[in-house]
Amino acid sequence: MQANLATLLATIPEISLCSSADLYGGEEPGLPVLKIQGASGSAAVALQGAHLLSFIPAGGRELLWLSPKAVFAADKAIRGGIPLCMPWFGRHPEGLPAHGFARSSNWDVSEVEILGNGDIKVVLVLHDTAATQALWPHAFVFRLALTVGRELTLALSVENLSDQPAPFSQAFHSYLAVPDVTEIAISGLDGCTYVNTLLEGHPRKVQEGDLHVQSLTDRVYLNVPAKQVISHGSGQTHIVSDTHSAIVWNPWEDAAKLADVGQGNYPGFVCVERGDVLDNALTIAAGGVYRASMTLSE
């Protein structure tokens, strides 16, 4: 744990440090979690992975789904919330850990601030180490600025400090809470080409109208509009991002094969992720910076 964290948090009483075991149960000591309680909204973020676990706008409902079987352990990705999948998304061609190392690395808190409108901002940072260099041979600084209010905004920057270009892809892997995934409608993808990763050869098709999830679903939509809306029995969840891809996933009955999801839990969430993957992946020039943001709201 960084030495100056207690001093930093002492300036903002709306932010406290606790254990995941205190909030969600499980074995002690759990993982360190920042609990943010502002006038306009509350949130929780694990320092491992800079991982959003909860977001509730004031007077509203929980927008994120956290698995009741989530495991809070060192070096293990947490199931639910918003993991950061980078510096690559999905399987790695050379067999390295899926979805990169950012979501299982320990981030530091560099800034905390109450903004003029009362929203609370927290900035977390991750620097390269010998362990990350063995996986992705680039010096870097990852920064994630979280702003908690009536909306939740994630602003990511990835600075390539090396003298070589760095191949890069990423996704804000958002698990969104819904009353029943079989009854939702996802708008904002009509006319977009998607890759069906479940079928041999990963065929491409064009979305027609709203998307309704009625079975195991794993699609990567390319060159999507900025906004998607998930309509459901509790209202709507709005997603706005300047990234170019959207990934829609629900494991359906295959949830039984995922120990940290479990049989019967799949109807409570849908993943509608925003990022830059597949055709929208990129290369960060030597000394260059990649920036991306996403905002969630009711």
Rank of each mutant, 00 (worst) to 15 (best):
G38M: 02
L52W: 12
F55W: 14
L53N: 10
L17V: 14
A10Y: 02
E14Q: 15
A46K: 01
S16K: 13
P13E: 06
S16N: 10
D22I: 04
A21Q: 13
K35G: 01
L34Y: 02
D22R: 04
A44R: 15
S16C: 05
A10R: 08
C18H: 13
V45A: 03
S19M: 15
S54P: 10
L34P: 06
A10F: 08
L53C: 06
G25N: 00
G49H: 01
Q48P: 07
L34K: 03
P57K: 14
L31R: 02
A50V: 13
D22G: 04
E28S: 01
L53R: 04
S42I: 02
L47V: 06
H51A: 05
A10P: 02
L17M: 14
Y24H: 00
L34R: 02
Y24C: 00
E14K: 15
P32I: 01
L47H: 01
G26R: 00
L52G: 06
A44D: 10
S20Y: 12
A44Q: 09
A10S: 13
K35S: 05
A21F: 14
A39R: 10
Y24E: 00
S16I: 09
S20D: 06
F55E: 09
L9I: 04
A46I: 05
G41F: 03
A46W: 06
A10I: 03
V33S: 00
G41A: 03
P29Q: 10
A50E: 05
L34Q: 07
G59F: 12
K35W: 08
G30H: 08
G60W: 13
L47R: 03
V33R: 00
C18V: 12
A58R: 15
G38N: 09
S40K: 07
A44M: 07
G30M: 08
A39Y: 02
I56Q: 13
A43T: 09
L9W: 08
Q37C: 14
A46H: 06
S19R: 13
A10V: 05
S40T: 11
I56R: 15
L52N: 09
P32L: 01
S20V: 11
T11D: 15
C18E: 14
I15L: 15
A50R: 05
I56M: 12
V33Q: 02
V33T: 00
S16Y: 13
L47Y: 00
L23C: 10
Q48T: 02
L52K: 10
L47G: 03
